[in-house]
Design a binder for these strands. Structure first.
Lengths: 236, 236
DNA sequence: CGTCTGGTTGATCTAGATCAACAGGAGTGG
DNA sequence: CCACTCCTGTTGATCTAGATCAACCAGACG
């Protein structure tokens, strides 16, 4: 093996779950030719709030956080995007500037696909549009749910909630068969994700620890009794 | 004139702004044949959270509120939908139950379009899908904005904000050229719309009144100095 | 008339924001 | 090697926005 293996769109495993699975071979070949894959470090940004949309970003590996900020310096993490997801599509479809910033939370490989190519594929293959429609509908549903939780549930509940969501995505069982979760986020990002301050996050982590739901050691979380935790979540 | 005039889809003015403007004459004729127009009173519900999606609802006149509730009785108004808007499309596209309830806030005329017809039109005319895509993207953007506001701004700010939004949709100038807004909502719905309690809403109305931004008399709001109000909004 | 619903007001309590101090790394540079 | 800063996270103290509970009023409507 001579260094990094080049991954073609054909061989890209994450494509199955992404909108791009709607493409036929010829279209995939086009995509593979024009895509610009790049290794990106944590902390770097794919696009910035207010910037014009140059194209789409398809995440091959790593984790991307979608942030929203305002003039007063308030900042929130709207959502996390992982392997297979395509980000930046809303600004593209809107044909206007990005309303959010996309930042690498974990290092990874992301392919950039320029605007013109996406436009071409979209007019050529109606199914691609329907895929984006699916994605957009899921996003809207999730945002509605988050809004609802944000204005109705207290921080502790939202924390338990996000812990379960993160567990489903990043958790697993350790050697002894105990539920463990490696957090892909700093504490302050965790706070931003549920819309609270870092101090409140810290205190609530202590609280759920005292209550015996989970133990936090750095970024690893051990969940002793998942069922008990589930029972304390609001019936969504 | 013999009672109510029947409005065909061809003559329906609100169609211009809706997704249905993507249809050609033959498709419009089909839509016109199968649509089920109905006059609806305030308080009645188009569909209920948890119910299966039977089809779409196209609002000709009146105002619809999209509510979300949970087991504990918490309730929120997610958004208001007016003439020309089609509601219920997310559950339809998701092919699953409604996640929200749609309730008439003002009486009006709403056309029901059954699922099978929409499915047929959607496969037949790709542009219709793109229209829904637009709609979905706008919804997602708006929900992201609302989530952000909900977790970062206090009630008073959100109230001033929603007043401006409502003014743009329902406001105007009175005989003396003063800005007036006729609220299409009860106080408690106004509270639900910004995610707070009726009591807090009442107190904050008093507050913005004391501050001289607006005068509330029943459901009519007189905004004395719009510019001053705008200056106090967060730069979105 | 009563009853009911929607709205306002008062009193109280608490979740959570904010300000401040401080403790552990992790570099970095002498 | 130490001294320095920078950054993240925790903790303490304080303050306030807002939820909650309760009483009350006005209009609608049987």
């Amino acid at each position: 093996m001579a260094g990094k293996t080049r991954v073609t769109c054909f061989g890209c495993q994450t494509r199955r779950t992404a909108e791009w699975c709607a493409l036929d071979d010829a279209e995939l070949a086009l995509l593979d030719r024009v895509k610009q894959p790049r290794e990106r470090e944590a902390g770097t940004t794919l696009f910035d709030q207010g910037a014009p949309c140059a194209g789409l970003y398809c995440i091959q590996t790593g984790l991307v956080g979608i942030r929203k900020l305002d003039a007063r310096g308030n900042s929130t993490l709207l959502r996390l995007c992982g392997a297979g997801e395509t980000v930046g599509y809303r600004a593209f479809l809107r044909k206007s500037d990005h309303l959010t910033t996309a930042e690498m939370l974990l290092p990874g490989r992301v392919c950039f696909i320029d605007r013109a190519t996406v436009r071409a594929l979209l007019t050529q293959n109606p199914n691609l549009g329907l895929r984006f429609l699916d994605h957009s509908v899921r996003d809207a549903d999730e945002l509605a749910q988050r809004y609802f939780e944000g204005v109705t549930f207290p921080v502790r509940t939202r924390l338990l909630n996000v812990l379960m969501v993160l567990y489903e995505r990043f958790g697993g069982l350790d050697a002894d068969g105990r539920a463990v979760l490696e957090l892909p986020l700093s504490r302050q990002d965790l706070a931003a994700l549920i819309g609270t301050s870092p101090e409140s996050m810290s205190r609530n982590i202590g609280r759920v620890q005292d209550e015996g739901f989970a133990r936090f050691e750095g970024r690893t979380v051990r969940i002793d009794d998942i069922d008990a935790l589930m029972r304390h979540l609001p019936a969504s």
